[in-house]
Structure formats: C-alpha cells, structure tokens
Amino acid sequence: MTLGAHRIELLQYDPPAQKHEPTSPSHAGVVHIALTVRDLDAVIDVCGRHGWQVVGAPHLMASGPRAGTRIIYLDGPRGGHLELIAPPQLPNQQF
C-alpha cells in the first residue's frame, strides 16, 4: 500500500515445517517489520538506545535494482524484529 512517499508491504510466507523455532529474523517464517530509512547509522544508534540489538553488520547490496542499498536486522528488547533498509540517496529525494 502506498500513500504519498510512504509504503507498507504486508507479506506472508508459508515456510516448510520446521523442527525448531527460527532464531534469526532472516529465516523463512519469522515475522518482522521493514522500515525504509534515510540514515541507517543514525537509526541504529537511536534503536540501540532503546534496547534493540543489531544482528550482524549492515549488508550492502552490490548489484541488481537495489544496488547501493544497505540493510540490517535488529532484535527487540521484548522480542520482535526490525529490518532497516537504506537505499542510496538521490538528489532531492524525500521519504
């Protein structure tokens, strides 16, 4: 769903049956919210001050339609997961 410069994607995957609960936000079947951000490092800092922990290091997409985009997952202090997506900035781009 798109409203102006904002977009919400609701996805549901039907993963294969698993013997154990997925432990990473990148595993199939794990529910998370993805947010597009302008300054990934600043948002990671703010989230960290509120108890969110980064999972690994930011991943830089090197090729394809999202080349230059940085992505990282965070685990919440009470469970839950966030995915932060920082596309490369274009002049005069707002979101």
Score class of each variant (00 low, 15 high):
residue 9 E to D: 08
residue 61 M to F: 13
residue 28 A to S: 15
residue 15 P to N: 01
residue 64 G to F: 04
residue 45 D to K: 00
residue 9 E to A: 11
residue 12 Q to M: 09
residue 21 E to R: 10
residue 62 A to I: 01
residue 46 V to W: 13
residue 42 A to R: 04
residue 36 T to S: 02
residue 36 T to N: 12
residue 40 L to D: 03
residue 6 H to L: 08
residue 80 G to P: 05
residue 54 V to E: 09
residue 46 V to L: 10
residue 82 L to V: 09
residue 31 V to H: 15
residue 46 V to A: 05
residue 60 L to H: 08
residue 5 A to H: 13
residue 67 A to G: 07
residue 43 V to P: 03
residue 14 D to P: 12
residue 77 P to L: 00
residue 68 G to S: 06
residue 6 H to K: 07
residue 64 G to P: 01
residue 54 V to Q: 05
residue 64 G to H: 05
residue 54 V to S: 10
residue 21 E to S: 11
residue 9 E to C: 08
residue 28 A to P: 04
residue 48 G to D: 05
residue 54 V to F: 13
residue 70 R to D: 05
residue 19 K to R: 06
residue 10 L to Y: 02
residue 66 R to Y: 11
residue 61 M to S: 07
residue 76 G to M: 11
residue 34 A to K: 05
residue 77 P to N: 04
residue 68 G to Y: 02
residue 63 S to V: 11
residue 36 T to V: 05
residue 63 S to M: 07
residue 35 L to F: 14
residue 61 M to Y: 08
residue 29 G to E: 03
residue 14 D to E: 01
residue 56 G to M: 02
residue 42 A to N: 03
residue 26 S to R: 14
residue 55 V to H: 10
residue 61 M to Q: 08
residue 72 I to P: 01
residue 48 G to W: 06
residue 74 L to C: 03
residue 65 P to Q: 01
residue 28 A to M: 10
residue 27 H to G: 14
residue 13 Y to W: 14
residue 11 L to K: 13
residue 44 I to K: 05
residue 64 G to N: 04
residue 18 Q to M: 04
residue 71 I to N: 01
residue 81 H to S: 09
residue 8 I to Q: 07
residue 7 R to L: 03
residue 34 A to V: 10
residue 60 L to N: 15
residue 18 Q to Y: 11
residue 68 G to A: 03
residue 27 H to T: 15
residue 16 P to C: 08
residue 22 P to A: 03
residue 25 P to T: 10
residue 41 D to Y: 08
residue 38 R to K: 14
residue 50 H to N: 11
residue 21 E to Q: 13
residue 78 R to G: 04
residue 26 S to C: 15
residue 67 A to K: 09
residue 81 H to V: 11
residue 27 H to C: 12
residue 20 H to G: 02
residue 7 R to A: 12
residue 12 Q to S: 15
residue 25 P to Q: 10
residue 43 V to M: 00
residue 51 G to S: 02
residue 30 V to Q: 10
residue 22 P to R: 08
residue 57 A to M: 14
residue 36 T to Q: 07
residue 24 S to R: 02
residue 58 P to A: 00
residue 32 H to W: 09
residue 66 R to S: 08
residue 71 I to V: 09
residue 10 L to M: 15
residue 72 I to E: 04
residue 73 Y to P: 00
residue 66 R to V: 14
residue 36 T to W: 13
residue 10 L to R: 11
residue 80 G to C: 06
residue 70 R to N: 02
residue 50 H to M: 12
residue 16 P to Y: 06
residue 31 V to T: 14
residue 49 R to S: 13
residue 16 P to E: 12
residue 41 D to G: 01
residue 40 L to V: 06
residue 27 H to N: 15
residue 46 V to R: 05
residue 11 L to Y: 15
residue 48 G to M: 10
residue 34 A to N: 07
residue 22 P to M: 00
residue 65 P to V: 02
residue 14 D to V: 15
residue 75 D to A: 12
